[in-house]
Design a protein around this nucleic acid. Structure first.
Lengths: 164, 164
DNA sequence: ACAAAGTACCTGCCTAGGCAGACATTGCCT
DNA sequence: AGGCAATGTCTGCCTAGGCAGGTACTTTGT
């Protein structure tokens, strides 16, 4: 364990990863919802669509894990995508608990049409960043994410030991 | 404008700032709410408290801007903090639209008691990061935030021109 | 073979935050 | 002075997501 980074002198909002992340999340959400507004598609719905297309997740539970969401909320989100004909549900034959998701032709078309919009948006936001800087930012965030996942897992284990 | 960073080959979830930020936000929220659970305090309530204490914002509207939140939601959040005796509302004498916020002794105590918890948490998450890396991550995120704010402002101006 | 635990899905309930609208007050501009 | 936009605050209404519970199914352990 290295010397702690935060201490009472340097710990303030502008300097805090929590605050920066929260603020970024709010702004990104607003901007991205704007991008999808004419398709009445939300950011998480788009992530769900792309996840299914790219075989990252093909079940409700998988998408919920991927997004770090509640499985109940995910069911309802998928309901909407299904109702609008962007994807289909199919009860799995070999494991009858599972409902497998698949894109419809329309779902595929929407995902394809939206991708360049999102890319253009991000390239505009990143226009003053060198590729090296962007790459490094992504690398650091990826490490932070992994570290957070470990931390949350540890918290959970701690609780289980307490109750045991 | 530099060469665009994202193109069809490298644009995927694990690589996307939007996805990374969203995922981090979810995990950070869970972890931080956990930290405050015994005080029945949420992350945004804590930010509000600290904002008032440090003179970053002393009105509902100011806190709403600071957090990038809706002013209606902020009113209700402040209601809770007031009801629990952590801060007070005072109608401003010179500008009678404004309600000035101030911490109570209890609010000050809570803010003081929570700070080390949050610091400890972040230091644990960052234990595998050198100070140089953390500093750079914060710097990059700060630049990204500024860039996002410009982008959102531009979007808004664009809309206004359309309707005009 | 069978009980127990775990997993996937779905449903009601609750809360936080966004949006639109109302009101009071202030500042600006003619 | 008088109209009018802008600001701060607050209130209903709506939606998304968390939580708890219930059912169906599968896996694991005895």
């Amino acid at each position: 364990m290295s010397r702690p980074f935060y201490h009472f002198e340097n710990f303030e909002a502008r300097n805090s990863l929590g605050y920066l992340n929260k603020r970024l999340f709010t702004l990104i959400s607003q901007a991205v919802e704007e991008i999808f507004a004419d398709q009445e598609l939300s950011f998480v719905q788009w992530v769900a669509l792309v996840s299914v297309r790219d075989d990252v997740a093909d079940t409700c539970a998988g998408i919920a894990r991927h997004l770090g969401h509640d499985s109940g909320a995910t069911t309802r989100m998928i309901d909407q995508l299904e109702r609008r004909g962007l994807l289909t549900r199919n009860r799995c034959k070999t494991d009858r608990r599972v409902v497998r998701l698949g894109l419809t032709a329309q779902g595929r078309a929407v995902a394809k049409a939206m991708t360049p919009r999102v890319m253009t948006f991000w390239n505009a936001v990143l226009k003053d960043f060198s590729h090296a800087e962007t790459t490094q930012l992504i690398a650091l965030l990826t490490r932070l994410l992994a570290s957070m996942e470990r931390e949350v897992a540890d918290q959970k284990n701690g609780e289980q030991e307490e109750t045991a």
